[in-house]
Amino acid sequence: MNIELAVMDVYLQHPQLLDAQVDAGLGALISRYKAELLGREVSPPQLPQRPLLVFESVRDTTELMLGRPDQVMDTITLEETVTCLQRIRKSVNFWTKRSGKQGYLKFVRSQLHPAATDS
C-alpha cells in the first residue's frame, strides 16, 4: 500500500498520468533493484518526465522500506521489494486492460480515496 500511495502522489499532482507511464517507472525500478541483487552497477534511468516522477516517488518509498539510509523501522529485503513491485506492475496491466489508459490509477484512487470523484 505504501508503494501505491507513492504512485497516487504523482497521479494527484499530474492527473494526466497514464498507466503505461506508471508501468515504465515501476519497470525501471525493478531493473535497478535486480541489477543491485546481481551486484551490477546501477545507472540512472533514462525515462521521460512522468515515468521518472513515478520512479523517484516509488524509489523514495522503497528505500525507506529497505531501511535506507539507516531507518529505525522494520525493513523488507531487496527480493521482497522486487516481488512487491512486480505484483503491482501486474495489477497495472490488469486494470489497464480492463478499464483503459488510466484504469489502474482510477481503481487505486477509488480504493485509497473513496470520497474522491473524477471530473
Results as ranks from 00 to 15, higher is better:
Asn2Arg: 10
Glu4Asn: 11
Ala6Met: 02
Val7Phe: 06
Val7Ala: 05
Val7Leu: 06
Asp9Asn: 06
Asp9Gln: 10
Val10Thr: 02
Val10Ile: 03
Tyr11Ile: 01
Tyr11Arg: 05
Leu12Ser: 05
Pro15Leu: 03
Leu17Pro: 01
Leu18Glu: 11
Leu18Ile: 05
Leu18Met: 11
Gln21Trp: 03
Gln21Ala: 07
Gln21Thr: 07
Val22Arg: 02
Val22Pro: 01
Val22Glu: 02
Val22Ile: 10
Ala24Ser: 13
Gly25Cys: 02
Gly25Trp: 00
Gly25Arg: 00
Leu26Ser: 01
Gly27Thr: 10
Ala28Tyr: 00
Leu29Arg: 00
Ile30Ala: 05
Arg32Asn: 05
Tyr33Asp: 01
Tyr33Cys: 04
Lys34Leu: 07
Lys34Arg: 07
Lys34Cys: 02
Ala35Arg: 07
Glu36Asp: 06
Glu36Arg: 08
Glu36Val: 01
Leu37Ala: 08
Leu37Val: 01
Gly39Met: 00
Gly39Arg: 00
Gly39Asp: 00
Arg40Thr: 03
Arg40Gly: 05
Glu41Leu: 13
Val42Met: 06
Val42Glu: 05
Val42His: 07
Pro45Asp: 08
Pro45His: 11
Pro45Cys: 14
Gln46Cys: 14
Leu47Gly: 08
Gln49Trp: 15
Gln49Val: 15
Gln49Pro: 12
Arg50Glu: 15
Arg50Met: 15
Pro51Trp: 04
Pro51Lys: 05
Leu53Glu: 10
Val54Trp: 01
Val54Met: 08
Phe55Arg: 04
Phe55Cys: 05
Glu56Cys: 09
Ser57Gly: 10
Val58Gly: 02
Val58Met: 09
Arg59Asp: 09
Arg59Cys: 06
Thr61Trp: 03
Thr62Ile: 10
Glu63Leu: 09
Glu63Trp: 03
Glu63Ser: 07
Glu63Gly: 03
Leu64Trp: 07
Leu64Val: 07
Leu64Thr: 03
Met65Gly: 08
Met65Ile: 03
Leu66Trp: 00
Leu66Lys: 01
Gly67Val: 01
Pro69Thr: 12
Pro69Ile: 09
Pro69Gly: 08
Asp70Gln: 14
Asp70Phe: 13
Met73Val: 11
Asp74Tyr: 12
Asp74Leu: 12
Ile76Ser: 04
Thr77Trp: 00
Glu79Tyr: 02
Glu79Thr: 08
Glu79Gln: 11
Glu79Pro: 00
Thr81Asp: 02
Thr83Tyr: 06
Cys84Thr: 09
Gln86His: 06
Gln86Trp: 02
Arg87Gly: 07
Arg87Pro: 00
Ile88Phe: 07
Ile88Thr: 11
Arg89Met: 13
Lys90Thr: 15
Lys90Phe: 15
Val92Leu: 12
Val92Trp: 01
Trp95Asn: 10
Lys97Gly: 14
Lys97Gln: 15
Lys97Glu: 15
Ser99Val: 08
Gly100Tyr: 09
Gly100Ala: 12
Lys101Asp: 14
Lys101Val: 13
Lys101Pro: 08
Lys101Cys: 08
Gln102Cys: 06
Gln102Pro: 08
Arg109Met: 10
Ser110Glu: 07
Gln111Met: 15
Leu112Arg: 12
Leu112Ala: 11
His113Tyr: 14
Pro114Thr: 05
Pro114Gln: 06
Pro114Asn: 06
Ala115His: 12
Ala116Met: 12
Asp118Pro: 05
Asp118Trp: 14
Asp118Lys: 11
